[in-house]
Design a protein around this nucleic acid. Structure first.
Lengths: 233, 233
DNA sequence: CACTTTGTATGTTTTAAAGCATCAAAGTTA
DNA sequence: TAACTTTGATGCTTTAAAACATACAAAGTG
């Protein structure tokens, strides 16, 4: 169960939050333009084709952002973690969402009204610049993914995805188990391969002692070797 | 030969230029922070790994922006046309370039100093917002490309690339010939396929009367059918 | 509780696209 | 203009990954 005691204060006072850099006056006003929503596991936050309702900040939980491709096959373009921003690309480009967001686990999302973002936040050049920086990094990531997903072989793509999950969500207290509960299908959709091939290749990695699998629990046993497999393609 | 008479005036006074929306004072100051460079065909403007030297605007010519992938295989991530902005992603994310830019033809590029961009342009919220919008659109494009390049079959990918070239550069006076002189290898690198397959599939499209080829001149004979081939994957 | 659905695991077959080889045409340089 | 290099065109072979087929376990559902 989530800590439902989380409130707006905790969001604006956390240095990792994008709203942290607003000045006090702006923060005060933000209170009137913000709302919190709770989602269970596997719920849509927004769907491809929806009109953006605001600027979304994932307060707690984990979310996958994906696009539907040929024959409904989905490609995960990004994973979000707490205090990550979601759905802002469509808002800023004034388009409908071209990707969907679904929770991987119980999550808390706060929505900030477009009015506040446009008339207040974006007038603050620190905020604007932070957004520019975020978009630039994400664009760099997306371009890199395009290349690796098209050019690397299955093993390389899967290794890269596992390392990506490690970077994004880190480990449990044991220091080896990935701190994310994700289906084989989602691993496949993250790595541009079929579910069968994700399962098969995970098994191979486990046989080779690079990882250990116990249901959905994945332990990274040899990150260096995964790096090498990822680099080799 | 390029019209070398092009100057800073022509850049700031063109409504399609991002600098058009600066106020007069900012425009005046811009003059002292701008320089023009001329490139011949197939010259590098910047290379993957280079440190960004400034904010670049393609004044005239055509440029491909690409990343090196597995085994040196290149993937074109974007094509630029006059008054398009290049190399700004790396500048704003404060990273080294993660892609290279090479001219497809004789080109003119203007460089604006990072100081002017940071201390002046980005303080103008109209400019910042234009950049945010540009990045957002490009990110949407990149995410879409990831999906189509990984999921569509060869015919779909090539059809999409031809339509992309059409959208970007348009037609010659005859209304059918693509206004870009591009090698089969570049078409392949744009479409995530080998040069052989690009050549082969172009021939097939020509046999099917969707296009006509005469050396590097490509005529789009049936754009609707190309759209259909592109959509079907 | 049985019953259906969903997720995981593997083996087998098929296929799209890469890889390779060869040749012709067009450009470039000596 | 001859020699060389690059680019374009096509056929043939190989291969990586999809597609398909079961089987079985786990998790929901009536």
């Amino acid at each position: 169960m989530l800590n439902s005691g989380l409130g707006v204060k905790d969001i604006v006072d956390n240095p990792k939050s994008i709203f942290y850099l607003l000045n006090q006056e702006e923060k005060d006003e933000l209170q009137h333009h913000i709302s919190l929503a709770h989602y269970r596991r596997n719920e849509f936050i927004f769907k491809e084709g929806d009109k953006p309702t605001g600027f979304l900040l994932l307060v707690d939980g984990k979310v996958k952002i994906f696009k539907e491709g040929v024959g409904g096959r989905e490609q995960i373009v990004r994973m979000a973690k707490p205090l990550g921003v979601i759905g802002y690309r469509a808002l800023f480009s004034d388009e409908i969402h071209n990707s969907s967001a679904v929770t991987l686990e119980e999550s808390l999302v706060c929505t900030v009204s477009p009015e506040f973002i446009y008339t207040r936040a974006l007038k603050n050049s620190d905020f604007s610049f932070k957004i520019i920086r975020k978009l630039s990094k994400e664009l760099g990531f997306s371009n890199s993914r395009t290349v690796t997903l098209t050019q690397k072989h299955i093993r390389g793509r899967l290794a890269e995805s596992l390392l990506l999950l490690k970077e994004k969500y880190g480990f449990e207290h044991d220091g080896t188990t990935l701190k994310v509960y994700i289906s084989r299908e989602d691993i496949a959709n993250l790595s541009n391969m079929t579910t069968s091939n994700a399962i098969r290749t995970l098994s191979t990695f486990a046989n080779e002692k690079m990882i250990a699998i116990d249901g959905r629990k994945i332990k990274i046993l040899d990150a260096n070797r995964l790096e090498r497999v990822s680099k080799l393609g």
